[in-house]
């Protein structure tokens, strides 16, 4: 039983082939990594699967259902949560509101509730709020719930994004460079949080990362993407020693 299966995905930007014959299977509870030099097409792969772009060719099955061509909000609702490489938060909203917002598609009170504050809406909003608090606690920023996001430090914002993604009730979580711009201490904390989330919610996780140490410690299987093509796939130590990978990636850009 796989959660996500991508087959023969190819994408062109104009005449430029950005991704070529990309395949991926993610099983429940698995942590998979995607590495590759800058401009290799990692973020494009993310955006294709999450529905921001529609692939030129290929099939994407999320929990057995074809999601190619669906709008991102439907894909997200079907169980694909994500974070962004450069934080994409809503600058005029509080932390709590961010997490509540991710429950949008699960709300049942409808516009009648929104306009007339029906008892059902009051109850449901209270439930969402409680749920949001528990997720914020899980990633360790419960005490910041009432703060506006523009007032918070970078590390906290990364956690808020994580909580927000979790609020969509994902079956699989996409993390786009979760440690970008973090110092070593924050990095260790982020690793802890990912482990915790993975353990407590039994999530499948698919992440893009630059820092080899991070990938090697967390991931079960790692793919290396170069010029839109997967050149190697396997467990971390295999990847680490693959000559092709070393030449294309590790040889030029070693980061620890």
């Amino acid at each position: 039983m796989t959660i996500l299966r991508v087959e023969h995905m190819t994408h062109y930007f104009g005449g430029l082939r950005a991704v070529n014959n990309y395949n991926l299977t993610v099983d429940p509870g698995q942590i998979r990594g995607l590495i590759g030099p800058n401009g290799a097409g990692k973020s494009t792969v993310f955006n294709l699967i999450t529905g921001l772009y529609t692939p030129t060719e290929g099939t994407i099955l999320l929990d057995g259902e074809d999601i190619v061509g669906r709008p991102p909000y439907q894909i997200a609702d079907m169980g694909l949560g994500r974070t962004f490489q450069n934080l994409q938060l809503w600058r005029h909203m509080t932390v709590l509101e961010h997490v509540k917002m991710a429950r949008y598609s699960k709300i049942t009170y409808g516009l009648v509730g929104a306009f007339f504050a029906t008892p059902r809406r009051v109850r449901e909003e209270a439930e969402i709020k409680a749920k949001a608090y528990s997720l914020l606690e899980l990633v360790g920023v419960g005490h910041l719930a009432e703060q506006n996001v523009t007032n918070l430090p970078y590390g906290a914002l990364r956690r808020v994004e994580m909580a927000r993604a979790l609020a969509t009730e994902p079956k699989i979580l996409f993390l786009d460079e979760p440690t970008a711009g973090m110092n070593p201490e924050e990095l260790v904390q982020m690793m802890e949080i990912i482990r915790k989330v993975h353990r407590e919610l039994n999530l499948a996780i698919f992440l893009i990362e630059h820092r080899m140490k991070f990938v090697m410690e967390l991931c079960d299987i790692v793919q290396t993407l170069v010029f839109g093509e997967v050149i190697a796939e396997g467990p971390p130590d295999y990847i680490q020693n693959d000559p092709q990978v070393i030449e294309a990636y590790l040889g030029t850009e070693v980061e620890t």
């Binding site: 005029h92 598609s105 969509t168």
Partner: peptide, 15 residues
């Protein structure tokens, strides 16, 4: 507000 401040993020959060 979410659509105003970041539409892509709103979309990705089931909005």
């Amino acid at each position: 507000n979410a659509v105003r401040d970041d539409e892509v993020a709103a979309d990705a959060m089931t909005v």
